[in-house]
Every structure is written in structure tokens, then in C-alpha cells.
Design a protein around this nucleic acid. Structure first.
Lengths: 328, 328
DNA sequence: TTGTATGCGTTATCAG
DNA sequence: CTGATAACGCATACAA
């Protein structure tokens, strides 16, 4: 479909080279023919074939983002930010989802390269050497979201250890003497640790340990049962639950509520990953804001710089802040 | 970058046509040379240039989805569904965001066409004739999410009128005699009505009117103030608030809570657009489930069929269901 | 079974 | 100022 430069050339009675000159102002051209070409181009609704252009230019002004899915607000928010930045630089953003499927992730990366993406932003689940090798032979720059999985990769993430440490500090400042860290299973199906949650756990354990207060870690799929059990049989004072994720915290508040435990009277709670989910509820939710949008902006800026051949730092850590609520 | 069929041909000492035959099994080829080519292709990490292929095939196996943004869960959920379906049919999904910018939307559509997208899924904000014209001259099929804005377009949506009507029926069954419909501003910046909310309003008014009970509609940005005012000065019995969106409902519950009004003791409330946001909270939220995933599946199926030249219905309406909670 | 020639729509180079 | 020609990487009809 669609009218091409060839058509325009035929219709305007000039060569295709002249058409290009008229359309993109390269080289010199008589003003009159330029106008005539531009007019007919507009009239006929000429649209350049970006594929053909990319083919010859070896640049597509397209950036690929491959993330797991859009289920919680984490990636949507980040992608919104990335998208704004790439748009500012007149790049098109191509988002694809690997759905936690390692083969799919590789396939998508190959597809992006096949479509001449100028750069990639990855939330990658593959961690092995073969994958690292693949990445380094892509021929285009890429930025990894989250953790530094590979030596040579560029990453944008959060210092989870430091963040959790600060979270514990904050809880202690509020006067709590008894801390419970709630975290999902730390290992995935292949036995590979979820590095983010693991760093958080360490941050918690180190800082809580240093304080000399009572603390414990609850993890596993049955964390709700375990937490309730803690509340019923183990708590010696009003405990603070520090949940490694707002969704867990939300579920916990709900489960506790159904069992007659109310926040912040009977217990304190703090989340992680502020994604705006529970920000409108009473009591206002205390959580760690890991600034997802900032991560998005940073990742996009980094990648755009890399595409333009600029020198960029290898790793960027976005500092967190604590959202003071009423649940502690 | 990357090795091409040309390179393979040179290295294997055959013509490029033979390479193609080896790679895609078209035509006949001696098994030995086939193996040899396949081996070297693998060794050298040959990846087809999808752009070049699309250019000659005039098919890209790529589908574009252009939506406003990913801010609330509505589009992320739908896109997840669309993505699953397109992936099943080995199409790649290219998601882009127009951020409520009419020019941007047109630009993105043109870009998708420029990238030889085989079809488009649109959450379009342009409503005028020029845009309709543009769509119909795209040369590729497209499906519009939401409302039938143009005569000839294919759409997947919800019968909002019917849905709201059913919602009112449900509320009345629960014994309420006093209904308040809460809806955001019904017109956008350009004075064009938000058709979805408008249909909902009509459904509410018609059904509530028919029942003979007391009812009113609250709309505008200050709906919280108005709702509180209603509660304080106008309510004659325990009213049911029917909010045209879960987020409004959430905010309302919160605002009422801060003013000492508790659900479901002091008032009833029902939402719309079940997006899973408040499903974990107590009391469990009563809302209208408009089955976003189903919309996604339907839209993807429809588009894929259209791409394959099949006959498809022009409009698909996804039936809603009511999620029975504890807020009524 | 294999090779040659042509074209997809664009941009770039080099003549004229 | 303009036109012819080649190239990007791939696929395919046709010839050998």
C-alpha cells in the first residue's frame, strides 16, 4: 500500500533522488520543484517506509524495552517514564513482554535486534554466561534494570541493602523494639535467588542485628499464616512488620484486620515498592519509595547517551526515600 | 553488525538462494549442503534481518498497540492479555503510548504503518473525520478498544449502558432506596464527551428513574466535597453510592472514613472497572467487573482474524459481571 | 540440486 | 540543480 518516492518521482516527473532532496532538505534543489513535490507528497499522503529507511541507514530511531509483564504498577510506571524520555529524543519505544519465560526473552531480544532497534532496556531473567555472551554480541547498547547480573553490563537500580537498612532505622526511630521482616520465597524455580529480596533481607538482618532489638524473618508462600502465628504466640511487644513489597503488606493488613488486629494500634507495618496502590487508604501507608519513574528516566538517559556514543557510568543507583504514613 | 546471508553464501561457497533454501526449507536442496549451511549459520550466530524480510515480504508479523499510558491497571491488564494471544500466533506485539496527545497518536500510527505493522489495536482519542479518514487509508486492519467512534471501524468494548443498568438493579435488590451516581467530568478539554461515562450515566438515570426511588448524579472534580455534602445534608436514608470507576470509589471510602462514615454501616458503595486494586481490602469491594482481559483476548483474536482475511463481526461487546463484596 | 536476476523503498555517491 | 546507479538484506521466479 502507500505511495512511495518512486510514485512521487513518476508523478512529479523527476527522479527519486530529487524527491529525497525535496523531502529532507539534503543537497540543493530549486525552490519551485521542492514546493511542487512537497505539495503532491502531502496530497497523496506520502509516508516514508521506515523499514526501508532503517535498512539503508542502519539506524531505526527505535528503542526496545523487554520486561516481564505489566501486572503490578512497577513496570508500567517505569515504562511511562522511559517512554517520555525516549519521545523527547524522538525515539519510538517498542515494549515487549517475556512473561518470565527465558527462551521468550532471548527470542524477543533477537527480534528487537532483527528490527534494528538502536538500543535495549532489559528486565532480564536469564542469568547465565551464554546469555551474557549473547548480550555482548548484540552490536547495540543495552541497559539492565535492577541488578548487576553481568560484569560488563550497564545497570540502573536501587541499593536495596541500603534502602532496607534505612527502613529499619526509621522503624527503630519510631520506638519499636520488635521487628519482623516479611519476604516472599527467595529462590526462583531454578534455584536462583531473587537478588533484590535477598539484598533487602541482608539489609534488614544487619541493621536489626546491630540495634540489639528482637527481630525475625518470615519467608515463604504461607507468610500470612506465619505472620498471624507470630502475632498470636510470639510477640512480646507491639511488633513492626517490614514487608518486602507493598502487595504483601496490603494482604497482611487485610488478614490481620480480619483477625481483629488493627494497625497502628496492635502492630506497625511498613511496605516497600511504593507503587501508589494503597496511598489513598486510611491509615496512610508507610513505605519505601524506590522512585520507579526516576529509574525509568535514568535508564532511558543512559541508553540514549550510549546510543550517541557518549561515555556513561556503568551503574546508577537511585536513592530511596521513606514515605511517612500512619501505619508505624 | 551481524552476519548476513551474503556472508554465509561466501563462506559456504554457495549462492544466497541456496542459503535461503537451507534456512527455510523452501525448494529442494542436498541434505549435506543443507547441514553444512545450517551448521555455519548457527556457529556464526546468523540472525535474519527482520526489516529486510518485512520489506520484501510486505508482512512483518508485528502488531502495534497504541494506548494512552499504563498509569492504572486497565491497559496493562488488557495488554497482557493481548500479548498472550499475539504471542500464541507468533506475532510480536509493539506497544506504544500516546499520552493523551492527539498529534502523538497520529504520529505513532504513522510510525507503526511505517514499520509495516500487520495490524493495529487502538485506544484512540482522535474522534474527527480527518482521523477516521486516516484510519481507513492505513492499508492494514485495526481494532478500536472501547466505543464505536467511527461507522466502519471494528471495535471491542463493553455495553456500558447495560452494565450500569444491571449495577443499579443489583443495588436495588440489596434494598437501597436512595442512589447516588458519582462520575468524573463528562467532557474532555475539547468539549467532547467521555462517551463511556456518559453511557454509564444514562444507564444509571434510566434504571434508577424506572424504579421510582430517590436518586441523583454527582459529577465534577469536586465530587468528594459534593458526596460528603450529600451525606451530611441531603440523605434521607442509608444511600448507595455507585461510582463510575473504582478509583473514585476508593477515594470516596477514604474521605468518608476520615469523616466518620463507615461502609457498609452508614452507606453502601459500588465501584466500576474492577482492576484488582482494592480486592484485598476489608470490607471486600463490590464492583462491576468489565473483564479487561477478555476484552484484550477478543481484540487480539479479532485483529488476527482480520489480518488473515477472515470475516469478523464489526463489534464485540464483552458482558460484565458484578463482583459481590461487602460494601453494599 | 543450484545459481542468476530482480525487486522491496530508501539513502548516498558521483556524474552531468 | 538534477539524474543515474548502487547499496542495505532478503526472497523468489526463472534459468541452468
Amino acid at each position: 500500500m502507500g505511495v512511495t518516492t518512486k510514485d512521487l518521482a513518476r508523478i512529479c516527473g523527476v527522479s527519486r533522488a530529487t524527491i529525497t532532496r525535496a523531502l529532507y532538505g539534503t543537497g540543493s534543489i530549486r525552490e519551485e520543484t521542492r514546493q511542487r513535490i512537497l505539495d503532491t507528497a502531502k496530497e497523496l499522503g506520502y509516508q516514508p517506509d521506515l523499514m526501508a529507511r532503517s535498512l539503508v541507514m542502519r539506524k531505526s530511531r527505535m528503542i526496545g524495552a523487554i520486561v516481564v509483564d505489566l501486572r503490578n504498577q512497577y513496570f508500567p510506571k517505569m515504562i511511562d517514564a522511559i517512554e517520555k524520555r525516549t519521545k523527547e529524543s524522538s525515539y519510538m519505544l517498542n515494549i515487549s513482554l517475556h512473561e518470565d519465560d527465558k527462551e521468550e526473552e532471548k527470542k524477543l531480544i533477537r527480534a528487537m535486534v532483527g528490527y534494528h532497534a538502536d538500543g535495549l532496556i532489559l528486565n532480564c531473567i536469564n542469568k547465565d554466561e551464554e546469555f551474557e555472551n549473547m548480550l555482548n554480541h548484540l552490536g547495540i547498547p543495552y541497559v539492565i534494570l535492577g541488578y548487576k547480573a553481568f560484569k560488563n553490563s550497564h545497570t540502573v537500580g536501587v541499593d536495596e541493602y541500603e534502602a532496607t537498612r534505612k527502613g529499619v532505622e526509621y522503624i527503630l526511630e519510631k520506638g519499636y523494639k520488635e521487628l519482623v521482616f516479611v519476604v516472599p520465597p527467595l529462590y526462583d524455580a531454578d534455584g536462583i535467588p531473587n537478588i533484590g529480596h535477598e539484598y533487602r533481607r541482608r539489609g534488614f538482618v544487619d541493621e536489626a542485628g546491630k540495634s540489639g532489638c528482637r527481630y525475625t524473618v518470615i519467608y515463604g508462600r504461607d507468610y500470612l499464616t506465619q505472620a498471624l502465628d507470630y502475632m498470636r504466640t510470639k510477640a512480646m511487644s507491639k511488633p513492626a512488620f517490614f514487608c518486602s513489597g507493598d502487595t504483601f503488606a496490603g494482604d497482611l493488613i487485610n488478614a490481620f484486620g480480619q483477625n481483629g488486629y488493627l494497625v497502628p494500634n496492635d502492630y506497625g507495618i511498613m511496605g516497600y515498592d511504593k507503587v501508589g496502590l494503597y496511598q489513598n487508604f486510611t491509615p496512610k501507608f508507610t513505605t519505601v519509595d524506590n522512585h520507579v519513574e526516576q529509574m525509568g528516566y535514568a535508564a532511558a538517559d543512559m541508553l540514549l547517551d550510549m546510543i550517541e556514543g557518549k561515555e556513561v557510568p556503568h551503574d546508577i543507583k537511585i536513592p530511596i526515600t521513606i514515605v511517612e504514613g500512619q501505619t508505624l
